[in-house]
Simulated assay, not measured.
Amino acid sequence: MKICVYCASSAKVDRMYFDATEKLALEFVKAKIDVIYGGGAIGLMGKLADTIIENGGKIKGIMPKFMNEVEWAHKKVVDFEFTDSMHERKAKFLEDIDGLVTLPGGSGTLEELLEAITLKRLGQFTKPIIILNTNGFYDPLRTMLEKCVSEQFMHEKHLEMWSFVDNPEEVIDSIINAPTWEQSAINFATNK
């Protein structure tokens, strides 16, 4: 199984987010899951990569060349792909994966997640999207997405596009048991 992980590059976040990232990384290694991520060496990205590497797992970084030029790339990640743009990077993240996991993060993480949700809504991406809601971090996003449905900006079926979980140990089961999503989902895009 190959899973893409979106997460923060900030090293200033609370320790609990690092602990949750480490637990998730160990779950991935134990399950022999290959991980794709943004390639960073610090913050939750660094913790994810360090834990996977230290425990014999597989991880691949994908990063735009301009980020590598300022030395943001993790030096111990041997499988790396450098892209020409952020747009290309996001497309590469979703190629040939079996699921997507989003950890807490800032504007970049949110932007990547919302693009994936949009692509899933249009049937262009059909894999599970799991949102690790450590310490209720994503509660406001859940409320906003539910409001989009209750106010009829999205169809009720769209609530099946993602799953929120509170603990890293729930992630793999949530990927395996996620509702099936088909390319025909585009038919729901206009709330028909």
Rank of each mutant, 00 (worst) to 15 (best):
E69G: 10
R89C: 04
V78A: 02
R142N: 10
D96F: 02
L113G: 05
L145P: 04
I129C: 07
E69R: 11
G105R: 01
A73M: 08
L94Y: 08
L103V: 03
L113Q: 06
P104H: 04
K92Y: 09
G123Q: 14
L110F: 13
L114W: 05
M86D: 05
D84R: 03
L113M: 14
K65W: 05
D96W: 09
V149G: 12
I97L: 12
A91F: 06
R121N: 13
E88M: 09
G108L: 03
A91C: 06
G123V: 03
V77G: 13
H74G: 07
K127F: 09
L113V: 00
K75N: 03
L113R: 01
E81A: 04
D139F: 02
L94C: 06
M144Q: 13
V78T: 13
G123S: 03
I97R: 09
V78G: 10
F125C: 11
D79S: 09
L119T: 03
F125T: 10
I131R: 03
L100I: 01
S107G: 00
D98H: 07
F93R: 07
T109E: 08
I131P: 07
A91N: 15
Y138S: 01
Q124F: 05
K90M: 07
H87I: 11
E88I: 11
G105T: 00
C148V: 02
L110S: 06
R121T: 10
R121D: 06
T143G: 03
N133S: 07
C148A: 10
T118W: 02
W72F: 13
E95R: 10
I117A: 11
M144T: 11
L122I: 08
H87Y: 09
F93K: 04
L141G: 12
T83H: 07
I130Y: 07
E69D: 15
I130K: 11
M67S: 00
C148W: 13
L110A: 10
K120G: 09
D96Y: 07
E88H: 06
R142C: 02
M86A: 06
L100P: 00
H74M: 11
E95S: 08
L103Q: 03
D96E: 15
K75I: 10
I62P: 13
F125N: 09
N135C: 08
P128G: 02
E111N: 08
C148R: 03
G105C: 01
D139W: 04
T83I: 06
V77M: 15
R121F: 06
A116R: 13
L103H: 05
E112H: 02
K90E: 08
L122N: 07
K65A: 14
V149K: 03
G108P: 04
L113H: 02
P140W: 00
V77T: 14
H87F: 10
P64M: 01
K75V: 06
S107C: 03
I129M: 07
F82D: 08
I130H: 10
K90W: 05
V77S: 09
T109Y: 03
L122A: 14
P104K: 01
L100D: 00
D84H: 06
V70W: 12
E115N: 04
R89V: 04
L110V: 01
W72E: 14
G108M: 10
F82G: 14
K75A: 15
E115A: 07
M144W: 14
A91V: 12
M86V: 15
